[in-house]
Amino acid sequence: MTIVRLGYVAMSMELKNASPSKTMTFSQFQKIEDREAAVRKLERISISNLENTLRLLRHNAASSIHFYRLTSRLIPLANHEELLDWNYMKPLKALLKEIGDFSKKHQMRIDFHPDHFVVLNSHKRGCFEKFYINTYNALSFTKRNGNRSYTPVCHACWWQL
C-alpha cells in the first residue's frame, strides 16, 4: 500500500574526494592579508562544494535515489556579518541553476537542515536576528537600517533563481 522512499544526508561513502562541506573559518579568513584573495579563496571553496553536490546528485541518479539532504555547509561564511559586502551568489549562480535543473529533471526531492544553533525561540530578540546572519545562508535575513524590517538575503536566490 504505502510507498516508502529512502534518502540520505550530505555525503557519499562511495564517491571519493567529493566532499560538499569543505570550509574556511573566519579566523582563517582573517589570517589572509589580501582580503580580495581571501574572498576569492572562499569562492573557490564554495564552487568546489557545489560541484561536488552535483557529482553526488549524479551518483544518486545512477543509484536511483530520489531524496537527498544538502549539506548545511555549502557556502562558508556566507552572510557572516563581516562579509556582508561579498556578493557570493554571483559566481555560484550558474552552478546552482545546474543543481536545480538536474534535480528537477530526475525528479529528486532535495532539502536542508540548518545547524542546531539556528534557533527560533531564543530569549533575546537581537540575538535571534544575529543567529540568522551568522549561520545558515539559505535561511538568513538581516536587519536593515537598525529597524525591525527584515530583508531576506538569499533564500529566494537559492531556490527560485
Partner: peptide
C-alpha cells in the same frame, strides 16, 4: 535553482 522553496528546511524547535 528554480525550485519552489516551500517546506525545504527542517528545524528543531530550539
Amino acid at each position: 535553482m528554480g525550485i519552489d522553496p516551500t517546506h525545504r528546511c527542517v528545524m528543531h524547535v530550539g
